[in-house]
Structure formats: C-alpha cells, structure tokens
C-alpha cells in the first residue's frame, strides 16, 4: 500500500504532462471528429527535437520546448495537407506521417535514445531553488502550463476562427455554405493539435531526462483512453472549459490507474493492452446498452397489450 502512495506524485505529474497531449487529441478527436494517428510520431518528434537541441546545441530548455511544439505543428501540417489537398482518408494520412516520423526521429537523434543526464531542464531551476523533488517540480510546472493552455484554448474556440473550426467538425456542409474554407480549417486544427502533442513530448522528455525513439508508441491510445476516462468521470459538466479540464484530469486518472496496476505487480508490457481495452470498452458500452434497451423495449403484442 505504501509503495502505491509513494508512486503517486510521479504518476500525477506524468498524467499532467501527458495531459497536454490529450488536449491536442481532444481537438482532433472531439472537435474535428477525426482520429489522428500522427500523434504517436509527433509526440516522439517533440521529445527528440527537444533532447537534441538541449544536449547537442545547448539550447535554453524553454526554447527547446517551443521548438518541440513547432516541430509537432509541422508534422500536423503534413497530415493535414495529405488529407485535404490529396484527399487521403484522415486515418491513413495520419499513419503515413506517423510511420515516416519514425525514420525522421531516428535521423534527428542519430541513435535510438538520447539522455539528458547533465543538462538543465525547465524543472532544474525549481528543483534547485525550492529543494523540490523532480516529480514535484514537474507537477507544479505541468499544472501551470496546463492551466495556461486550457485558458488559451477556451479563448481560441470562442473566437470567430475557433467557432468556424468547431462548426467544421459539427456540420461541414453548413460551414462551407457559410463561406469557410474547410480544408484550411482542418489543416489548422491538425497543426494546433500536433503542436500540443509535440509540446507534451518535449515536456515528458525533460521530466524523464531522456528521449527515446519509441516514446510515442501507443500515445494515441493513451490519449483516447484519457479522453474517455475524463468523459465518464466528468461527462456531466457541459461547458467547454470543463471539457478541456476533464481531458487533462482523465490523463491524470489514467496514469494513477497505471501506477496502481504496476505496483500491484502487473507486467508493464501489458499496459498497452489495458489501454486498448479501456478505449474499446468505453466505445462499445454505449452501443451495447442501446441494443439491449431496444431489445427490452420490443414487445410482440405492440399497442394491443
């Protein structure tokens, strides 16, 4: 039991840092209604870019973080252009970018992982100044960044441009008839989304002090699991701001669950299976419930009963 408690701070801080990625997935999956598989690649890309800029080029860790977001944004643009200009289905466009990013990331790093052992990260200052543990510093900075991003996204999706973007996911025929270039909207959403994913990759890289070619594998499933967990726990809250917040909280809950099952002795290799099962269950339960209801409601006698 004690061990589980000890694992919590690190689990929660991971949840918050990965929660930034979940905000990105929220934009494509919930607002645009696209499952964007670029994420696995752009998350690792963010981590790789961030690690290399710090280790090899001695960049300021905050600037490196910014570049991680820019790199993610470019990856999103590639998927967006494949999808809109060349009309490749969104899922396939995402897969193509994801796969190609694996090679790109390996090229960027020149090896399959890069440690940041002796380099300063954005957390170093706080650790030194306050004498905090790394995971607590990551938690504090992660929460601040998450709050800022939620506020900015809330504002953005309330603007004319943001409303047009939401409408693109809601009724594309309508918003096109109202004079909006929906291709531009889709590319914009994919760029914004993957910028957040890249940023999250950079944050995770700095908190764990290494970047790895495989750090993004399964990221999309973790993100979707976090979103459905957030939906289940806080789905009653209807406002847009609370939906964004519940996406991040869903991520925190996901990493808490993960820490618990790992502490209980589950093999870490089963984690991806567990994530996939969570998502599959969350998506299939409403369908099954609907079918059962329809079956129960049927009566052969009809109105004559």
């Amino acid at each position: 039991m004690n061990a589980i408690f000890l694992a919590m701070p690190s689990a929660i801080s991971q949840g918050v840092l990965w929660g930034i990625m979940v905000l990105g997935i929220f934009i494509t999956y919930k607002i645009l209604d696209i499952a964007d598989l670029t994420v696995d690649g752009s998350f690792a890309l963010g981590g790789c870019v961030c690690a290399m800029l710090i280790v090899q080029n001695g960049w300021n860790p905050w600037l490196a973080l910014l570049m991680a977001a820019v790199a993610g944004m470019l990856a999103g643009a590639v998927t967006g252009i494949l999808h809109t200009v060349f009309e490749i289905p969104a899922i396939l466009a995402g897969i193509l970018t994801q796969i190609s990013l694996w090679s790109v990331n390996l090229k960027i790093m020149g090896q399959s992982n890069v440690p940041l052992l002796n380099s300063d990260t954005i957390f170093t200052g706080l650790v030194n100044a306050m004498g905090l543990k790394q995971s607590n510093a990551a938690l504090i900075i992660g929460i601040v960044i998450a709050i800022i991003l939620i506020v900015v996204l809330y504002w953005f999706f309330g603007t004319e441009l943001g409303s047009a973007l939401r409408a693109t996911g809601n009724n594309i025929d309508m918003i096109r008839a109202l004079g909006v270039n929906t291709k531009v909207m889709k590319v914009l959403a994919l760029m914004l989304s993957n910028a957040l994913v890249g940023l999250s990759g950079g944050l995770v890289c700095q908190s764990q002090k290494y970047a790895d070619i495989n750090m993004g594998t399964g990221a999309i499933v973790i993100g979707l699991a976090a979103i459905v967990i957030g939906d289940v726990l806080f789905g009653r809250l209807r406002s847009f701001g609370s939906k964004l917040t519940s996406a991040v909280l869903g991520s925190v809950v996901y990493f808490i669950i993960r820490a618990i099952v790992l502490q209980l002795g589950m093999d870490a290799n089963y984690m991806k299976l567990l994530s996939a099962i969570i998502v599959a269950l969350a998506l299939s339960v409403p369908v099954v419930v609907q079918k059962v209801k329809a079956k129960k409601a049927y009566s052969a006698e009809g109105g004559a009963k």
Partner: peptide
Amino acid sequence: RGKSRTLKWG
C-alpha cells in the same frame, strides 16, 4: 458569411 474569420470573440 463571406467575411474572414478573425480572433475577435465569436
């Protein structure tokens, strides 16, 4: 309709 969508409130 037909106007550019800016970052003004929606």
